[in-house]
Amino acid sequence: MAPFSLLTLIFKFSLLFNFCRCVNLRNLNVSVLKWESNNWSPAGATWYGPPTGAGSEGGACGYGDAVSQKPFSSMVSAGGQYFYQSGKGCGECFQVKCTENEACSGKPVTVVITDECPSCDSVHFDLSGTAFGAMAAPGKADQLRNAGVLQIQYTRVKCNYLGVTVASHVDSGSNTYFFATVVEFDAGEGDLAAVELQQNGQDNWLPMQRLLGC
């Protein structure tokens, strides 16, 4: 999977400040896009990383080691381009299930897109070992992981981050002249459409720019 060095999570937006020594934020305004859930659709599925791990350490979306921690808890996936969307798909939630292998449970599990799979087919999930094994019947996770490429079913679902609607933090790469913030959790039915920044003592909102991949 594609590496990414910055310690961030889902989407990153940046704004260049060349007129001040520091940024005293007052507020962030986050807009979301509405979407409607689809019926179950077919996709391919594989897994990567340790058998009971979280895939890569963060991957192309820049999650870092957060992928193995709550609320993600290793239930993550790299996506083919249909899901990754050049970084815009980072943080989207899907239910996946398998029924065509005798080791499948047939029960859906929820995963979050946290990485890109550039070598995969477009409609493909490259799941963490943990997420892939979660589709198995009790005691058959290893058997399922040995099955190779699976044909699965998927559907888009709302993200549920333990009561958090939208959370963000300032990226560690920010400095006197460059400000970047990361929207960590975007729960519910929305994709991020825009983020605006308001400086302390000012009334106007400044549109921020998206950096691809995170």
Rank of each mutant, 00 (worst) to 15 (best):
G148T: 07
S174F: 03
T155A: 13
C98Q: 11
F132G: 02
G148E: 06
N101F: 06
Q143V: 15
K158R: 09
Y154I: 00
H124G: 01
I152V: 15
S168P: 00
V170K: 10
V111L: 05
D142T: 13
E100V: 06
G148A: 06
V123R: 08
P118Y: 04
A137L: 10
K107V: 13
N101H: 15
A103N: 12
S128I: 06
Y154N: 10
P138I: 10
S105C: 03
A134G: 00
G163P: 07
S128A: 12
G133I: 04
A167G: 11
V164A: 15
D171H: 10
R145S: 04
V109F: 03
A136E: 09
A134F: 01
T114E: 01
G133D: 01
I113L: 15
E100S: 13
P118F: 13
E102T: 13
G148F: 06
S172T: 13
G133R: 04
S119D: 12
C120V: 02
V123I: 14
C98I: 14
N146P: 02
A134R: 11
V96F: 09
G139C: 01
V166I: 11
D142A: 14
E102H: 09
P118V: 12
N146L: 09
V112M: 03
L127F: 06
A136Y: 09
E100H: 11
M135G: 14
G133E: 03
C104Q: 09
L162I: 04
A147W: 12
G106S: 13
G129E: 00
T114A: 03
Q143G: 08
A137V: 06
L127Q: 05
L150I: 02
R156S: 07
A131V: 13
I152C: 01
A134L: 01
K107H: 11
P108S: 09
C120D: 03
V164I: 14
N101R: 06
G148W: 07
H124L: 03
A167L: 08
G129C: 02
G139D: 01
L150H: 05
A103F: 04
T130V: 04
C159L: 08
V170L: 09
S119G: 05
S174V: 02
A131Q: 08
E116F: 11
V111E: 02
E100M: 12
Q143S: 13
Q153V: 02
R145D: 02
